[in-house]
């Protein structure tokens, strides 16, 4: 099979693998781990648009995820809304948060933008703790119902898996449409050179704001899914560390790609749950791996930046190009 055929078949292979998982995995916990992979992948699809395509750094994406998670929890538990309505509200609130942050911040560039989003993330972390009547403070928010759409309730591990990866699939389709059409070109141009993009007639502030909003929306929806899958959320989930983890997944996955970051999101999420992945792995060893989780992420970033600056996607493209040339 040559590289071109493999590249054409790659999306089909990925979908087939995603479909096989619930059939092949009988362990409920392991299936939940793959569901978490999907939730992280959803955040990373949005971040791939913002960072990987448009070149805008966000160190505050966990905050958008948190906004979505708390909105969904509050709407379903406190207001008694149907889950789907709470899910939509989560996306809207996160997108609004993205818009409010984007308008003043996106005139900033590089480190300054990273600092502004970092500040936003830290502020929201504190807000999740301080707004106790809404968020439950440090004790968190419990009793969040399982997701449901009309009469269909997603309670089993496999149904939650389908729901989450279904959402990832829709997000990928949306993102693929964005990146392969005119807005995607504008985003890549923006990544290449802001002045160059402006010289082509690209409204760079508009592109940045729109991309930021879409990216925040996806993170918010991922938060709502997390709340529904786990049934409990707390401020410790939506911290700077989580934001950096998402950025790590995007960097390792590679720029101007959706597949690479999704693959990286799955791989780096699995590191957190090595005990579930490797049967018979002693608990102590699993705990040791988990305690070095952030070091593993850091090392992955360093290695990627040095040896493959365009990430896993860049390696794949380089290999494909090499195969085609030979």
């Amino acid at each position: 099979m040559n590289a071109r055929t493999l590249r054409a078949l790659a999306p089909l292979i990925a979908v087939a693998l995603a479909l096989i998982v619930p059939l092949a995995v009988s362990d409920r916990f392991l299936l939940k781990v793959f569901t978490f992979c999907g939730i992280n992948a959803l955040v990373v699809v949005g971040l791939a648009l913002l960072f990987g395509y448009a070149g805008q750094v966000s160190l505050g994406h966990a905050a958008f995820m948190g906004l979505g998670a708390y909105t969904s929890a509050y709407c379903t538990v406190e207001l008694g809304w149907p889950w789907l309505l709470g899910f939509v509200a989560a996306g809207v609130v996160a997108a609004l948060g993205g818009l409010i942050l984007a308008i003043p911040s996106l005139r900033l560039k590089g480190y300054y933008l990273a600092m502004a989003t970092l500040g936003f993330g830290l502020l929201m972390s504190l807000a999740f703790i301080q707004a106790e009547p809404i968020t439950g403070g440090v004790d968190g928010f419990s009793g969040i119902p399982f997701p449901s759409i009309g009469p269909v309730e997603f309670r089993s591990a496999s149904s939650l898996y389908w729901l989450v990866w279904g959402a990832v699939g829709i997000a990928v389709l949306v993102a693929h449409n964005i990146t392969s059409l005119r807005p995607g070109r504008a985003m890549r141009a923006l990544h290449g050179s802001e002045l160059g993009a402006q010289a082509c007639g690209v409204d760079i502030v508009g592109v940045k704001v729109r991309t930021f909003v879409v990216s925040a929306l996806m993170a918010g929806l991922a938060g709502a899914l997390y709340a529904g899958v786990v049934g409990f959320i707390s401020p410790s989930l939506f911290t700077l560390t989580a934001s950096i983890t998402f950025i790590a997944m995007t960097i390792v996955g590679g720029t101007s790609s959706l597949a690479g970051p999704i693959l990286a999101a799955v791989a780096l999420t699995l590191v957190q749950y090595s005990d579930a992945l490797i049967p018979g792995l002693p608990r102590e060893t699993a705990q040791t791996i988990q305690s070095y989780q952030e070091d593993i992420y850091g090392l992955a970033i360093v290695l990627i930046v040095i040896f493959a600056p365009r990430g896993l996607a860049g390696l794949w493209k380089r290999r494909s190009a090499g195969n085609e040339a030979s």
Binding site: R188, A189, G192, S193, L195, G196, A199, S256, R310
Partner: peptide, 8 residues
């Protein structure tokens, strides 16, 4: 400096 989009 041209400011082209190199990878494109």
């Amino acid at each position: 400096g041209r400011l082209l989009f190199g990878p494109m």
